[in-house]
């Protein structure tokens, strides 16, 4: 599988890459997943969610993507309100329990699959029912000075 584009997370006003997909947990627990359109092998899930940690709570604050309508082959923009009716601005991710992985620093080792590439540091947030309980930073190594900064996707097929 191709390396995947990450989610986005805002922490203290700064934008980071998030290599965890909390929304997939929601779809899993809800028992159904919207038919997201995709035209790129680096974004199999078909959307990019924007998350925010506010007062130690995890919120979904935006989503970019399109829903594919099988019956007539058309697509429509997905919004927070279409996924969570009545909550167009912010959605508390109470369904999510697990670890958020927020890679930091330069690329250490590239793996062309999922979120498997390694970066200098991983910032982990332990979340229980949407509430951030603990944080830790895992130091994976020091990359060469010419290594790319930030989450990297080297190749993808668009169709």
């Amino acid at each position: 599988m191709t390396a995947q584009f990450s989610e986005i997370i805002l922490i203290d006003g700064t934008e980071h890459s998030l290599c965890t997909e909390p929304l997939e947990y929601y779809f899993g627990l809800a028992g159904k997943r919207p038919n997201f359109d995709f035209n790129c092998t680096a974004l199999y899930r078909g959307y990019v969610g924007t998350w925010q940690v506010l007062h130690d709570r995890l919120y979904l604050v935006g989503i970019r993507g399109e829903i594919f309508h099988q019956e007539d082959g058309t697509t429509s923009q997905v919004t927070l309100n279409s996924l969570f009716p009545g909550y167009p601005e912010r959605v508390f991710a109470h369904w999510f329990t697990g670890e958020l992985r927020i890679p930091q620093g330069k690329l250490l080792e590239y793996h062309h699959g999922g979120f498997n590439s390694e970066y200098e540091r991983d910032w982990f947030m332990t979340v229980e029912q949407g509430v951030v309980l603990a944080q830790r930073i895992k130091v994976n190594g020091i990359a060469p000075s010419d290594a790319p900064d930030g989450v990297v996707v080297n190749a993808a097929t668009y169709f």
Binding site: R57, Y87, W95
Partner: peptide, 17 residues
């Protein structure tokens, strides 16, 4: 949720389930 970003019902956004 203090910001009212989830329905205050059992299982919140998953209440229908």
């Amino acid at each position: 949720d203090p910001l009212d970003s989830a329905p205050a019902v059992p299982f919140g956004h998953l209440h229908i389930r």
